[in-house]
Amino acid sequence: MTGEPVLSVRDATRHYPSGDTVVKALDGVSLDVHAGELVAVIGPSGSGKSTLLLIAGLLEPPSSGEVRFRGARVSTPAVDLDRLRDFRRRNIGFVFQKANLIPFLTAGENVALAMEIDDVAPRAARRHAESLLTGLGLERRIGNLPARLSGGEQQRVAIARALANDPALLLADEPTAALDGRRGRQVIALFRSIADRRGAAVVVVTHDLRAADYFDRTIELIDGRIVDGRIGTTPASGEGGGRSLEPEMFRNETQHRRKSGATRSVQDRSWPGPVPCRSPDEDPIP
């Protein structure tokens, strides 16, 4: 893959004091993820997977090392993360084990909110949210409150929300843990298509190795260290012929969005279409 990686974690450590000792949740991890890449992070419980994601997602500062975004250093041990909120909103999407939807907003509003807080006009945000949800097979759920949705549906709404601002980087922490195997696989398939169609760099922490075939590569963490990392390798998957162009368009669009004043339009952003299926027996969107 040519060009700068979207995400580049350099030699990051994270120490937590625990009584008299120090827990090394992360112990010198480096990781590059390029646009269009889908990377799995696996490892036993307590190995530092979530910590890595928090540091990559600018939610925790590293104890040492740094995080670069398209080559620019954004997070260091001294960083004030609260000031990176705008950056996070525009560039990073998060998905967690729990959907964490706002309970008093409908599915559509939950997704639109992510855009409204980024100054998209309410009507445009609403329309884009609807098209995102429709693309995820939730067109009949747009007006429902989260409490009325199944776990899988909630998770898909959360994914739509994470995609709302067209982030260059999508981070998911065990997004399938609360879903059954089939739905879990569908969600991973969804991430695959997000990487392919949108050119997003996607990092997924997962236990679920049944969906391993979707990932471009897999990183294994043990005791805060990478044991099986192939940093910077080109994705093994041969998919996505036009992928190198997509991030470029995305970047230009991002640039344009930033300049176009307080209220931006989402007319130029649309869901690329139905999610492709890996095998005919698996329909990712029921």
Binding site: F87, R90, F94, N100, P103, I117, D118, R161
Partner: peptide, 16 residues
């Protein structure tokens, strides 16, 4: 508070 933390996570400004 949970929703507020979520709002912060998805990058909502304090003004929101």
């Amino acid at each position: 508070l949970h929703q507020i933390a979520m709002l912060k996570l998805i990058g909502a400004r304090n003004s929101v």
